[in-house]
Simulated assay, not measured.
Amino acid sequence: MGHRSVADLMTPTAVTVQRGTSFKEIARLLKEFDITAVPVVDDTGRPVGVVSEADLLHRRSADGVATAGQLMTSPAVTARPEWSVVRAARIMKRHQVKRLPVIDAGGRVIGVLSRSDLIQLFLRSDRAIQEEILEDVLTHTLRIAPSAITVDVKDGLVTLSGTVPRPELLPVVVRLCQSVDGVVDVDSRLTCAETKPI
C-alpha cells in the first residue's frame, strides 16, 4: 500500500460549491453526480469547508433554506496529490473526517479522496496479492525463484516462509511485500543459509 499516492485513488472533481450555494442546489448536485460530499470553495477556488450528505440530513428537519456556508464542516482538512495513501489515512483518522479535498500547489481543489477510496485497496483478493508477490516482488524484482519461498495470504495478512540466498534480502523482501496493494501486514518466517529466522 505504501507506494500508492493520493493522486492514484482520488476522484477528480469538477464539482464545488460556494458559501452562498443553497441547500436544494447542494442536494441536487450530490444526486446528479452521485457523490456523498462536495467541497466549499472561496472566490479563488480554495477550499473553506466540506458539505456532506450527513450535513444535509442533520439540517433538513430544521432549516431547508440553509446555505453551504451554514452547513459545511470547516475548516477544510485537505490532502496533496503526492501524499502517500498511508499519510492521507492518518490525517482522516486524526481529524475524524471521511473525505479530504485534494489541492494543487496553488491551493485549489483538484479532487476528493474518500474513506471508501482507501477501503478499495483492502478489497483485493488474497489470490491477487499472492500472485503479485510471487511474480512481481520475488521473480521480477528480486530474482528469487518462487519455489524457494512459500507465500500464504489470508485476509490481507501475508505469511512468508522458506529461504533467501543472502541475509541482506530478508528486510528487503518484507518491505516490498508491505508495499503491495491490499497487504495489511507481513509475518516473515524466512531464513537464510547464514542466519536464524527473523
Score class of each variant (00 low, 15 high):
Ala37Leu: 00
Ala54Arg: 13
His140Met: 08
Val50Trp: 09
Arg90Lys: 15
Pro197Gln: 01
Arg87Ile: 08
Arg108Leu: 09
Ile144Trp: 05
Ala128Gly: 03
Val15Ala: 09
Arg166Ala: 13
Ser61Leu: 14
Ala37Asn: 13
Ala54Tyr: 09
Asp8Trp: 09
Leu29Arg: 13
Arg189Ala: 06
Gly49Met: 11
Met92Cys: 05
Ile110Trp: 02
Leu118Glu: 07
Gly2Met: 13
Phe33Glu: 09
Pro75Thr: 07
Val174Phe: 02
Glu82His: 12
Gly182Pro: 02
Ala54Pro: 00
Ala76Glu: 05
Arg28Ile: 03
Ala68Trp: 02
Ala68Arg: 00
Leu56Lys: 01
Asp185Met: 05
Ala68Ile: 00
Leu123Ile: 05
Ser22Ala: 04
Val164His: 00
Gly20Ile: 10
Glu135Ala: 15
His140Gly: 00
Leu176Ser: 04
Leu169Trp: 03
Val38Arg: 03
Ile144Ser: 07
Pro171Leu: 04
Ile198Asp: 09
Ile91Val: 15
Val174Arg: 15
Ser52Glu: 00
Val48Leu: 14
Pro101Tyr: 09
Thr73Met: 03
Arg90Asn: 12
Ile133Asp: 01
Ser179Ala: 14
Arg115Asn: 07
Val41Arg: 00
Glu132Ile: 10
Asp8Asn: 14
Glu194Trp: 07
Pro39Asn: 08
Val180Trp: 06
Gly64Glu: 15
Met92Trp: 06
Gln120Asn: 13
Ile133Lys: 00
Pro101Lys: 11
Ile103Pro: 01
Ile133Val: 08
Val172Glu: 05
Ile119Asn: 06
Arg28His: 11
Arg124Ser: 08
Arg4Asn: 11
Leu118Val: 15
Leu71Gly: 04
Ala148Asn: 13
Leu121Gln: 10
Val151Ala: 07
Arg115Thr: 06
Gly69Tyr: 00
Trp83Pro: 04
Val15Pro: 00
Pro81Ala: 10
Pro101Trp: 04
Val48Ile: 15
Leu138Asn: 02
Gln130Gly: 14
Ile35Glu: 01
Ala193Glu: 13
Pro81Arg: 06
Glu82Asp: 14
Leu56Asn: 01
Ala37Asp: 03
Phe122Gln: 08
Ile133Asn: 00
Lys93Asp: 12
Pro81Phe: 07
Val48Asp: 10
Met10Thr: 07
Pro167Gln: 11
Gly106Glu: 15
Ser188Met: 07
Asp117Met: 07
